[in-house]
């Protein structure tokens, strides 16, 4: 019997589901092995009978907790999709402000009617079986992981920093150009795409499991980036890792 899969979203931009939809022909081939029962991005209709749940977005309200726990209880396998779900991502920027401030900034005078609280990744609330990192996720990584799951293999997700892929790509290191970069501590898997495109790594795939944050911070300081610059960059995507709740 084909495994049934469903997609869900919490606080996020649905960019990750869009990446999946953008797989187009590849997606159709992959989908021939599964039965999609819920996927707002490409179909209408929904069923509560599913084996694998792909969940996008962070938990940002008390009522989200009940919903994600319900999804967890129905799914045999739960995959967090994208930075908001895996590490809290940009949503965590508000965790460094007082609720009064961020509520007013987002909802104006009606802020007090909203029950929002500090943003957190899924794993802070429920057990997560696999994580697909990135903001947004990497389409080919999504396809590969789904294939690995279908073949009964353990999904392979790199545990080393982005620098590895950056060297493979043959880029000139941002530090050699007097610029900053978080590739030194961020989990690889994106092919160092931001550096290849001329920008630097922002840390969207989360901190690599054995990253040396102290050494990276020291290196950034030694390269002339002051405490505030480094702190703000680390808070951009890594707020939850950098200063957990």
């Amino acid at each position: 019997m084909k495994p049934k899969i469903a997609f869900f979203d919490f606080a996020g931009c649905e960019g990750d589901q869009l990446q999946v939809a953008n797989l187009e022909e590849k997606l159709l081939d992959i989908l021939s092995h599964v039965e999609v029962v819920s996927f707002r991005e490409v179909m209408t209709g929904h069923s509560d009978d599913y084996d694998i749940a792909f969940v996008e977005g962070s938990i940002t309200r008390p009522e989200d907790e009940a919903r994600i726990k319900d999804i967890r209880s129905k799914a045999k396998y739960l995959v967090a999709l994208g930075a908001c779900a895996t590490i809290g991502g940009v949503n965590c920027i508000k965790n460094f402000m007082s609720p009064d401030v961020y509520k007013e900034r987002v909802y104006g005078t009606s802020g007090r009617w909203y029950s929002t609280y500090a943003a957190r990744p899924l794993k802070k609330v429920v057990k997560v079986d696999a994580e697909l990192h990135g903001c947004p996720i990497d389409r080919s990584e999504f396809a590969r992981v789904v294939k690995e799951l279908l073949l009964g293999r353990q999904p392979w997700i790199p545990d080393y920093p982005v620098c590895v892929e950056c060297k493979k790509a043959g880029n000139i290191c941002r530090y050699d150009l007097g610029r900053i970069c978080l590739g030194t501590i961020t989990r690889a898997g994106c092919g160092a795409c931001c550096v290849t495109e001329g920008a630097h790594c922002w840390g969207c795939r989360g901190v690599a499991p054995k990253a040396n944050l102290d050494a990276a911070r020291e290196a950034m300081n030694k390269n002339g980036f002051d405490h505030k610059t480094v702190r703000d960059l680390l808070r951009f995507f890594l707020g939850d890792t950098y200063a957990p709740l």
Partner: peptide
Amino acid sequence: LCLACGSCNLVCPTCYCFDIREEADELL
């Protein structure tokens, strides 16, 4: 102070280590 980033290995002209993996096509 090591970041375990592997840059020193990967840029080295005499380092030759590699990892082997596999990937199936979409139709498996």
